[in-house]
Simulated scan of single mutants.
Amino acid sequence: MTQTTDLSLHDLPGHYIRRLQQLAVAIFLDETATYGITPVQYAALQGVHDCPELDQRSLSRAIGFDASTIGGVIDRLEKRRLMRRSPSSEDRRLKLLTLTDEGEALLREVRPAMMRAQVRMLEPLSGPDRENFMAMLKILVDRSDDGFRAVAESAG
């Protein structure tokens, strides 16, 4: 027999993590509205800027985005002429990603708005609390990401 427990949604970390993600996206979109860019598109642009000629699968790992849906993100950036795919000279099946001049320009232009969003996201916290919160977030994501990667690699 299954035992039921009276749980409040407000006692579940997953609920607050989901809500925080919703708030972070809303703040990002509010600050960057004039650029018409989503947080994932920004991450893809920044990821390719940081590591030009990255392939699609490596980009999805670098930014923590699903490999099966990153193609749609890249399609939209390509359509806006912000990013391009080029065949690899070593493996023609691989498409290497680079930013166009327009993509580099947009990344530079959107950066101040993106940074304002980051400040707004942590605004309710005091300085020391912001540092502690960021440290704890990094621990949760890094340790969970390592565990998830290990499980995925053993299954594949």
Rank of each mutant, 00 (worst) to 15 (best):
V48E: 01
L122N: 02
L9R: 11
M115I: 11
P39V: 14
A44N: 02
Q3R: 08
A113G: 06
I17Q: 05
M136S: 13
A155V: 09
R116P: 00
G103A: 04
S58I: 01
M114G: 02
F65T: 04
P87G: 03
L23I: 11
M83P: 07
S89G: 06
R18V: 11
K138E: 05
A152M: 09
I17S: 06
S154R: 10
L97K: 00
Q46L: 15
E78C: 14
E131C: 07
I27S: 06
D101Q: 13
E123H: 12
R120W: 04
R57C: 02
F148L: 15
Q21D: 07
I63K: 00
F133R: 04
L94T: 08
L45Q: 06
S68T: 15
R84C: 05
G156E: 07
T69F: 04
A155H: 10
S86Q: 14
A26F: 01
L125V: 08
R93M: 08
Q118P: 00
L20S: 13
R85T: 07
L29M: 04
P13N: 14
S154Q: 06
L12A: 06
Q22H: 06
P112N: 10
L99G: 00
Q118C: 13
D101Y: 08
I139T: 13
V141N: 09
T100S: 08
T32P: 02
N132K: 07
P87M: 03
E53R: 08
R18H: 10
E31D: 11
I17K: 03
A105E: 15
L106H: 09
R18Y: 13
S68A: 14
L107E: 05
F148E: 12
T4E: 09
V119N: 07
F133S: 04
T5N: 06
A117M: 03
L137M: 13
R116D: 05
R81L: 05
R18M: 10
M1R: 10
Q3C: 03
L77N: 01
I70N: 02
M115N: 11
Y42W: 15
S68H: 13
D6T: 14
D6R: 13
G47M: 01
H10E: 14
L125T: 09
D145F: 12
P112C: 09
I17H: 03
A24D: 13
C51F: 07
D50E: 12
F148V: 14
M115H: 09
S58C: 05
I74K: 01
P124L: 00
T98D: 12
S144T: 15
E153Q: 12
Y16F: 15
L107Q: 08
S60D: 04
S88Y: 01
V110W: 01
L77Q: 02
P13T: 11
P112G: 07
I70P: 02
L23Y: 10
T2H: 08
E109K: 15
Q46C: 13
S60Q: 04
E131G: 05
T2R: 10
P128G: 07
F65E: 06
G147K: 12
L23C: 08
R149W: 09
R57W: 05
I27F: 09
K138Y: 00
F133C: 07
E131Y: 11
K95P: 00
S60G: 06
P128R: 13
G36S: 11
V73F: 05
A24W: 06
T4A: 05
G72T: 10
L7D: 04
A24V: 12
P39L: 14
A62H: 03
D30Y: 08
G47Q: 01
D66Y: 02
S8L: 13
P112F: 10
L29K: 03
H15Q: 02
F148I: 14
A117I: 02
